[in-house]
Amino acid sequence: MALVATAVWTMTTLAEVSGPPAEPAFTIEITAHQWWWEVRYLSDQPHRIFTTANEIHIPTGEPVRFELKSADVIHSFWVPALTGKTDTIPGQVNRTWLEADEPGVYRGQCTEYCGLEHARMGFEVVAQTPENFKTWREDQLHGAEEPPNGGTAARGERIFMASCSGCHQVRGTAAGGAMGPDLTHVMSRDMIAAGTLETSKANLAGWVADPQAIKPGTQMPALPLSGSELNAVVTYLDGLE
């Protein structure tokens, strides 16, 4: 009896959660990388598509569809408080959906063993009221602001373009790398290094100076920057809000 009841519950619950209750208004494409999350907001209008990383904003009270991909090995997308796990598998697109009733920050984590830094491959889902979400989305669509001429930040931008732009994208500039996270609005995010450190100028400096000390094995190399160069780059990044 208990077994049959469990089986029936399993089937009905499965039918209920396998698809969203209403047609989602938009789709977010997630591409898992060793060891961070690329987040791309899709739209019918090409100019309204943008990319960010490791922090997913959604509006409360409506389902959002996710298309899950992988750039390298198998990972798994999990936000315990909002949805179960769905693997991201190279060569195929898996779909899931989630809906948050209350505004808040929900922690997510990779849950398929994917190599050295599987432990430090987190992300956040930030659920906002529809109005706040709309504001955030419009902000994200903007490119980065140009730093004032002649300052430390401007010097930092030049160093960034020479040393970092091969891997990172900053929209509105020449930096268009796709190996690492998009940094256009990096300072607007809660965490850096895929949920590893809280975003602050000091943490950013520590991270850029020696990523391997904080996240051994990360694909980001320690660059041979002098103290003043490091300071300039971090000052530049600090302006990317």
């Binding site: 399993t10 619950t13 959660v17 949805t83 179960g84 796990k85 769905t86």
Partner: peptide, 8 residues
């Protein structure tokens, strides 16, 4: 064994 539970 139950799929929705297993997903968590």
């Amino acid at each position: 064994a139950s799929v929705p539970v297993d997903w968590q």
